[in-house]
Simulated scan of single mutants.
Amino acid sequence: MRTSYLNDRQIHPAEFATWAGARRYHERHRRDRNVLDQLRASIPQDGIQEPLLLGVRERDGFVFVYEGHHRAVIALELRLPYFPLQWFIDPNIRSVQNQPFPQHLLD
Score class of each variant (00 low, 15 high):
T18F: 03
L76C: 10
V96E: 06
P81L: 14
I43A: 06
I89Q: 01
F16P: 02
H70D: 02
L76Q: 14
Q103F: 12
F101D: 02
R79F: 06
A72G: 04
V56D: 05
L36F: 08
R79K: 15
S95F: 13
I93Q: 15
R79T: 08
G21C: 04
T3F: 00
A20I: 03
Y25T: 02
H26Y: 01
L78M: 10
R9E: 14
P44K: 10
L85F: 14
R31P: 02
N98H: 15
H104E: 11
I89V: 15
A17E: 11
P44G: 10
G21W: 02
A20E: 15
D60G: 07
I11C: 09
N98G: 15
A17P: 04
F88N: 10
I74E: 01
A75R: 04
E67D: 15
Q38V: 05
P102H: 10
N92V: 09
S42G: 12
E15W: 07
H26D: 01
R57N: 07
I43F: 12
N98Q: 15
Q10G: 04
G21E: 08
I93M: 14
I74T: 00
R59Y: 08
R71C: 00
E67I: 07
P51G: 09
A41T: 05
W87M: 07
Q86D: 09
P81F: 12
N92I: 10
R2I: 05
F64Y: 15
P84E: 10
F101K: 02
Q10R: 13
R30Y: 02
I74W: 02
R59A: 11
R23V: 02
Y66M: 11
H12D: 00
F83V: 11
G55E: 11
W87E: 06
L54S: 05
M1F: 09
A72E: 01
I74Y: 02
D107R: 14
W19H: 07
V96D: 05
L78W: 04
A22I: 02
F101T: 03
A41M: 07
H29T: 02
E77T: 08
E15T: 11
V96M: 09
L53A: 09
G47A: 14
N98K: 15
V73I: 13
N7P: 04
Q10H: 11
D8G: 09
